[in-house]
Simulated scan of single mutants.
Amino acid sequence: MAKPNKTILKWAGSKVRIIEQLRPHLPKARRLVEPFAGSCAVMMNTDYERYLIADVNQDLIDMYLVIARDPDTIYSIGFEKLILSIQNDSKTYYGTRDAFNKRHKSKYDQAWFFLYLNRLCYNGLCRYNKKGEFNVPYGKYKNPYFPEKEIISFIDRAKNADIVCLEWQDTLSLVDFDDGVYCDPPYMGSGFTQYHTAGFSDADHEALAIALKDINDIQGNSITVSNSPEATELYADLGFTIHEIDAPRTISAKGNRKPAKEIIAVLEGVK
């Protein structure tokens, strides 16, 4: 079996490690709508005709748009790869983080800052404080990896994608009758919800689940959701079929790297 395609970013909860378990439960559709794009692991490892890739994190989406749409991206890879290798120190990291948070640079510069921070920050976390400032500390990696192959692969796959910065509610409003929907929200009870200043509460989880059920009832779209076991009752009560899987931990919990339980909740489409 071929190895799954890796992603540009290191990402908490990336679906690369479980893509073979997830793939059979993904919607069968012409276009896949993802309101929580994250690392784009699903787009990088599936072959839908079209994608609607959305996320509320403006920095994340701006980076994807620069990489996918800027004709100079491919020529910058070598330079940025060099910068990552020779400026791997705490002084440069925190200086770059401060410059990134001041947001005085162009979207092009901000995109590469974001990638630099992701590759050198602790555990590849994406976390902000209430002021909207990226606040993950330096990760002290000896040999950081620059995702050159992943960037080139992303550019190719993004040709079939519309990439937008939207709240999940607005993204779901764009779902057409023949679309499939895959949602990978911050997991219920995970603690890793501050990838955007608004966070994601239990009330948000309930609102999302009900909205997805409504879309299935009204339009007949196939729906797939990844979440933690804490969300089992919520989705089961709405009629979702629940599949439980073991997923490798991408962030250690007090040194514990044993597999964690996850659920895949599915509503079949109505033709």
Rank of each mutant, 00 (worst) to 15 (best):
1 M>W: 11
17 R>A: 14
23 R>Q: 13
24 P>Y: 05
28 K>F: 11
28 K>Y: 08
29 A>M: 10
31 R>Y: 09
36 F>T: 03
52 L>V: 09
52 L>Q: 07
54 A>Y: 03
56 V>M: 11
57 N>P: 09
60 L>F: 02
61 I>M: 10
65 L>F: 04
67 I>L: 14
75 Y>K: 13
85 S>T: 14
91 K>W: 08
95 G>S: 12
102 K>F: 10
106 S>H: 08
113 F>I: 05
116 Y>S: 08
122 Y>C: 09
123 N>A: 15
125 L>W: 06
126 C>H: 09
126 C>F: 12
127 R>N: 03
131 K>F: 10
135 N>Y: 08
141 Y>K: 15
153 S>N: 11
155 I>M: 13
155 I>H: 00
155 I>F: 02
165 C>E: 11
168 W>Q: 04
172 L>C: 06
177 F>N: 14
179 D>H: 07
181 V>Y: 03
183 C>Q: 01
187 Y>M: 06
188 M>K: 07
192 F>N: 14
197 T>I: 13
197 T>E: 15
203 A>N: 12
206 E>N: 09
207 A>P: 01
209 A>E: 02
214 D>Y: 08
215 I>N: 02
223 I>K: 01
225 V>H: 00
226 S>C: 06
232 T>N: 00
236 A>Q: 11
236 A>T: 01
244 E>Y: 00
245 I>Q: 00
246 D>A: 12
253 A>K: 15
253 A>G: 13
254 K>S: 15
255 G>C: 09
257 R>C: 07
257 R>T: 15
267 L>V: 07
268 E>R: 14
